[in-house]
């Protein structure tokens, strides 16, 4: 049962870290929105899914790559990859802003109860995924290979594949950029102020709507970047791909302590590794089940996550 895990430990680990970084970026979409709204961004999984289509459309329809064309090289390679990344981020970022505008804003202004907002958010995520289902005729969509999966070398018997390495370093870079943004920029400080105490932040003259829109945008950009890396590694997408990704990234966010950006980092990496190891032991069909069990266990025994604030705060 454990032979695969032991045999391929290092290649699994590398794959797990790459997957983990994808989770880190998607869970930022959950964690940042949760920070300011104290509410789960239910549509984040579909924002991710739209990002994956943004990535594929760029290489396939703008640059004209097909399943049979040769991978890009040199400056062209950089151009295509960066365009894909930017497009994915743009699509996801705009979708996120759209979601906030359509599903959350009006209800927030009315101050209605959480249940209404939750249902509205569920509704918009169904709309996003169904729209894509109708547009793609429920078919999976493959991505032309832009980045050749060259094997760069070998460490402890594990192959270092180009796409995995690019993913790990680029995703880590984007994560640190975003973290800096939230730490240092004016807007980032406003976001953190709202996360800590909405009323106080408002008194200090923070424009709440702008902060919330920005938060959705930044979360969407992170999620969009993740979508690009996901396509680079897995080269495939479908209208319903968001669900599993969303569950996993949300679990990562809770694991790290939802609302906490650093937490998303550790939670994502932990979950990426766990998922890869668990699949090696149990088989890939039980991947989602493993993630779910982790989620329930965390909520049961460590609901604050490893770094986070309390999930449940009541004040009479």
């Amino acid at each position: 049962m454990f032979e695969v895990l032991i045999d391929q430990f290092w290649s699994l680990t590398i794959a797990g870290v790459a997957l983990g970084f994808i989770y880190v970026l998607v869970s930022l979409g959950y964690t940042m929105v949760y920070g300011v709204l104290r509410m789960i961004n239910f549509a984040n999984s579909e924002i991710f899914m739209w990002g994956t289509f943004g990535t594929i459309i760029t290489s396939r329809d703008i640059f004209g790559y097909t399943q049979t064309s040769a991978p890009a090289t040199g400056p062209k390679l950089a151009l295509v990859l960066i365009s894909q990344l930017l497009m994915s981020m743009a699509v996801a970022g705009l979708t996120a802003v759209f979601v906030e505008y359509v599903a959350y804003r009006r209800l927030r202004a009315k101050g209605t109860n959480r249940l209404a907002t939750l249902i509205s958010a569920i509704g918009i995520s169904i709309v996003l995924s169904e729209l894509m289902r109708l547009l793609t005729d429920s078919r999976p969509v493959g991505s032309p290979r832009v980045l050749e999966k060259i094997i760069l070398g070998e460490v402890w018997g594990a192959n270092l594949r180009l796409d995995t390495i690019v993913t790990i370093f680029a995703a880590a870079g984007i994560y640190f950029l975003l973290e800096r943004f939230v730490k240092l920029s004016r807007m980032g400080k406003a976001i953190r102020a709202v996360s800590m105490n909405e009323d106080a932040a408002k008194l200090m003259g923070v424009n709440l709507n702008r902060v919330i829109t920005t938060t959705f945008l930044v979360g969407g950009l992170a999620t969009g970047a993740a979508a690009f890396f996901y396509i680079t590694v897995f080269e495939y997408t479908k209208f319903n791909i968001g669900f599993t990704m969303g569950m996993a990234a949300f679990t990562a966010a809770v694991l790290g302590g939802i609302g906490n950006i650093r937490g998303a980092f550790y939670g994502g990496l932990f979950l990426g590794l766990l998922e890869v190891y668990a699949s090696a032991v149990l088989g890939t069909q039980w991947k989602a089940v493993t993630v779910f069990i982790v989620l329930v266990l965390v909520l049961l025994f460590k609901p604050n996550g490893l770094f986070g604030e309390a999930v449940q705060t009541t004040r009479a």
């Binding site: 959480r114 569950m247 039980w286 089940v289 779910f292």
Partner: peptide
């Protein structure tokens, strides 16, 4: 028992997962 102690949106996402897990178990 484990999930109803949690606040609303957690319940929503855990039940969402549960529905899918039951299907996956039936499928596999």
């Amino acid at each position: 028992i484990p999930t109803l102690r949690l606040r609303g949106d957690y319940l929503a996402i855990v039940t969402l997962g549960f529905g899918e897990i039951v299907r996956l178990v039936l499928l596999n």
